[in-house]
C-alpha cells in the first residue's frame, strides 16, 4: 500500500496514455494493411483523448473522440472498400518514400521538440499538484458563449483596456460556418451522379 501511495498516479497515467499513443502511431507506420492501420489510428487518437481527460479538459477530450476518432470511421470505410483491390491489401513502401518521410517527419519532430523544450515552465515540475487536481474544469460553457459573442472571462476584468474584444468570436465563427457550408454544397455537387435527362432517355427512361 505504501508503494502504491508513493506512485504519482497522474504521471503514471500520463506515461501510459502517451506510450499507447506512440506505440499505436508506430503500428500505423509499420503495418501494411489499410484497415489495420485505421484500427491502430483509432487507438492512438483515443489515447490522445485520454491525455486531454487527464489534463481536465473534458470538453476537448470528448471533442477529440467525436471528431478525430469518429472521423477515422470514414477512413475505415474507405479502407474496407479499397481492400477489394490487391494493392491495398498489403501496401509496400519503397525505399525512396521512407527517406522522404524520414526527412519530413524528423524535421517536424525536431522543430516541435525544440519549441517544447524552450519553454521554461514546461521543464520544471509544478509544485502545486494537489491544487491542480482540485481545479474543476469548466471549459465548455465559456467556450460556447465566446463563440456566440459573450466573453464571460472578461466580465470581471477591472482594466477597461483589457475589456476590448467583448464581442467574442462571432465573426470568425460565422465565416468558418459559411465556408464549411460552401465546401459541403461543393462536395455534394461533385459527388452526385453526372447524368442528364438525355442520358436517362438513351437508357430507355430508366432512372439511375
Amino acid at each position: 500500500m505504501i508503494v502504491l501511495a508513493a506512485i504519482n498516479w497522474h504521471s503514471f497515467f500520463f506515461l501510459f496514455f502517451a506510450l499507447v499513443a506512440c506505440a499505436a502511431a508506430m503500428g500505423v507506420l509499420f503495418s501494411s494493411n489499410v484497415v489495420r492501420m485505421a484500427a491502430y489510428l483509432i487507438l492512438s487518437l483515443a489515447s490522445t483523448a485520454g491525455l486531454f481527460f487527464l489534463a481536465g479538459a473534458e470538453f476537448v477530450g470528448a471533442m477529440q473522440i467525436m471528431i478525430y476518432v469518429g472521423g477515422t470511421l470514414v477512413l475505415l470505410i474507405f479502407g474496407v472498400m479499397l481492400t477489394a483491390q490487391a494493392t491495398f491489401v498489403s501496401m509496400k513502401t519503397r525505399a525512396g518514400e521512407w527517406v522522404v518521410a524520414g526527412v519530413v517527419g524528423g524535421t517536424l519532430f525536431f522543430l516541435l521538440a525544440q519549441a517544447a523544450l524552450s519553454v521554461d515552465q514546461w521543464r520544471t515540475p509544478r509544485t502545486d499538484q494537489a491544487e491542480l487536481a482540485a481545479i474543476e474544469s469548466k471549459t465548455s460553457a465559456p467556450l460556447g458563449l465566446g463563440l456566440i459573442g459573450v466573453r464571460v472571462d472578461k466580465l470581471h476584468q477591472a482594466d477597461e483596456r483589457l475589456k476590448q474584444g467583448m464581442s467574442g468570436y462571432v465573426l470568425p465563427f460565422e465565416i468558418i460556418s459559411v465556408h464549411l457550408l460552401v465546401v459541403l454544397v461543393g462536395a455534394a455537387y461533385l459527388a452526385r451522379t453526372k447524368k442528364r435527362m438525355t442520358d436517362v432517355k438513351a437508357e430507355g427512361g430508366r432512372k439511375v
Binding site: 484500427a39 470538453f59 473522440i65 467525436m66 470511421l73 475505415l76 474496407v80 481492400t83 465548455s140
Partner: peptide, 26 residues
C-alpha cells in the same frame, strides 16, 4: 462526473460501430 457528460456519452456511443465494422471486415 463530467461537466459535458451528454457530449461524452454521445461521442463514446458513436464508437460502438467500429467493433461492428471491424468484425464485418475481419
Amino acid at each position: 462526473h463530467i461537466n459535458t457528460a451528454v457530449f461524452f456519452v454521445l461521442a463514446i456511443l458513436g464508437l460502438e460501430v467500429f467493433g461492428v465494422i471491424l468484425a464485418g471486415y475481419a
